[in-house]
Write a protein that binds this DNA or RNA. Sequence first.
DNA 1: GGTAGACCTGGACGC
DNA 2: GCGTCCAGGTCTACC
Length: 328
Amino acid sequence: MPALVRPQVKVRGSLLRVKVPADYSLSRDVCSYGYFLLRPNHWIVDQQCLLTCLHLEDGAAGCKLSQPGNKGSELSVRFDRKLTKPEQVEARAQLARMLRLDESRAEVAAFHKVDARWKRSGRGRLFRSPTLFEDVVKTVTSCNVAWPSTINMNRRLCEVCGKQSPSGLFSFPTAKRIARMRAGTLRARCRVGYRDQRLVELAKLFVRGEVDEAWLTSSGTSDDEAFGFLLGLPGIGPYAAGNIMMLLGRYSRLALDTESIRHGKTVLGLTGTDRAILKRLDKHYEPFGGHRFRSYWFEIWEWYQEARGPAHLWDRDEVGASFTASKF
DNA sequence: GGTAGACCTGGACGC
DNA sequence: GCGTCCAGGTCTACC
């Protein structure tokens, strides 16, 4: 979609009111992780609201999320078509996952108790996708590639494989859809490169129910068990598995990549070979225990914001599309 | 357990 | 406009 064309939710559809935790801030908690810059998401800076598109029982439904009141006030979610009752239930569940509404004020406070640096800003929640499948695909499309390519892959996945809503927004493709696609088609039309076969295999695992989100998030499943399972998935290595752990709400692991090395060198002043820096990073965040990823991530996020201004003022097609670790 | 090279895309650069 | 080089994480083969 051309940068100058701003998608609009024009049709008067269903309106959902969504209750949020008392400390919830839409602009802060959405603009907290890079996925808010990836399709089907579009943060509208001058309105401070999120435009996105959900895949529901009767197809794609574009929606605009806003928080008309102060922090903690309920969200207004306007859809571009009428939703059936079951669709409303499904939409609420997807929105809750995406916005981390399951993370209460007390849970965020527990993080601040371990790392008080983020108490003032209130940061604690990390934006994610409405489904685990989308989170996994977004993670795979962020591996071994510069950020602008990740943006392109996600845009093409939505436009080529997603469904179009009444107002013209594209939803993210479902696992069922990707599982039916030929790897060559994904490669040629979505420019996913060698990830093509891995994405199809991942989708098939989801369709067959072999990736069980309930098990992965269960308190009865240890971090080691969840991490080990993720490592066994196609296209998922240590970085991707660590990232997906965070997306599942497990913050005890880091997702270390070249960006981490840059952070270790420039912000933490670590020296030595890349391998040595990675080891030191692991050690450095040990004191944050079960919250390590958040402490690590918000340091990186703050650094981005110092360079590019507050994230809630980033325009997806300008700042969002241009930033890469090597350019900072 | 550690290491080297292939896998792809897109941006940067030189001509 | 074209060709070359490089960055990026995972996977496989090999030692």
